[in-house]
């Protein structure tokens, strides 16, 4: 039997609108993944350290406040520094079109905008999470 995919769902920054993060956390859990929800107001350092501790395959960020262009580069940098380059980072929230190529450039390809079906996110993560050894 294959091991479960481990996903850390995180809310970085000051925003408290956690409806999306929680609905996705539950959908991933219902899809058979191991989900760790960090709760609110996480710094990039806290998120990366949670990913390390939890041996996460995927970090799912929920950002609606417009702070993604500050938070994402920092998280990618920290992951690299900790040797966690193979952890897949995905993001859901309000992301202006102009920022999408920039996020892709950092290595973030799973970008889920408002209205994305939950199943689509589940499938994406299942297909792209790092292989468990």
């Amino acid at each position: 039997m294959s091991q479960k995919i481990r996903v850390v769902i995180a809310k970085p920054g000051l925003d408290g609108h956690d409806r999306g993060a929680k609905v996705i956390a539950r959908a991933l859990r219902d899809a058979g993944m191991e989900v760790i929800y960090t709760g609110l107001r996480q710094t990039p350092e806290m998120i990366v350290s949670a990913a390390l501790q939890e041996d996460a395959d995927v970090i799912g960020l929920s950002i609606l406040s417009g702070a993604h262009m500050h938070i994402c580069p920092r998280i990618m940098e920290l992951l690299k520094a900790k040797g966690l380059d193979d952890v897949q980072v995905v993001i859901g929230g309000i992301i202006p079109d102009v920022d999408v190529p920039k996020l892709n450039g950092m290595g973030i390809h799973g970008i889920f905008l408002p209205g994305t079906p939950m199943q689509h996110i589940v499938d994406y993560i299942a297909a792209n999470a790092r292989a468990r050894v």
């Binding site: 920054g13 000051l14 417009g66 702070a67 262009m69 500050h70």
Partner: peptide, 22 residues
Amino acid sequence: DLPTLMGRDPDHELCLGEVGKC
């Protein structure tokens, strides 16, 4: 904006990218 709503001055670490946004 979120820093004001959360009672943080813009130089606090959690305010990264949040000042004047929302």
